[in-house]
Amino acid sequence: MKLVILITGSPYSSQAPYSALQYCKAAIAAGHEIYRVFLYQDGIQLSNRLATPPQDEINIFNEWTDFIEANSIDAVTCIAAAARRGVIDQNEAERHNKDSYNIHSAFELSGLGQLVEANIQADRLITFGA
C-alpha cells in the first residue's frame, strides 16, 4: 500500500513523531511504501536542525532524519505552519530578511498542496496528532 504520513504533534511535547517513526519502520518492513511524510501544525518542529536534546535521551530529530535519508523518503514541512513557528529555509530567510535559517536538509519546505497531492496518490493517509 502507498501511505502518506501526516505528523501534527510536536517532538517531546507529544509522542506523535516517535509513534509515526515506529509506524513507518513497520510499514516498510511489511512491504508498504511511504509516499510522503508531511509535517503540519506543531509537527513542523521535527524539521528544526538546531534542536539538541541531552545525550542520554533519544534524539528523535536524528532518528527521523537518519530514517528519511536511509530510505529516500519524501519529507515535506508545511511552509506556512513552519514560518509562523520560526522554522525556515535559506530562501525564506533571504525573503524575510532574517539572519539565519534552521530547517534540516532532509525536509523540504512546501505548501499544503503537497499534502493534498499525496492524499490523491496514496491508498491511506495516517495522522499522528498531539
Partner: peptide, 12 residues
C-alpha cells in the same frame, strides 16, 4: 490550520 487545509484541498 484545519480550515487552511480545508480551503487548500477544496481549491485542488
Amino acid at each position: 490550520e484545519a480550515v487552511d487545509l480545508a480551503l487548500a484541498a477544496a481549491s485542488f
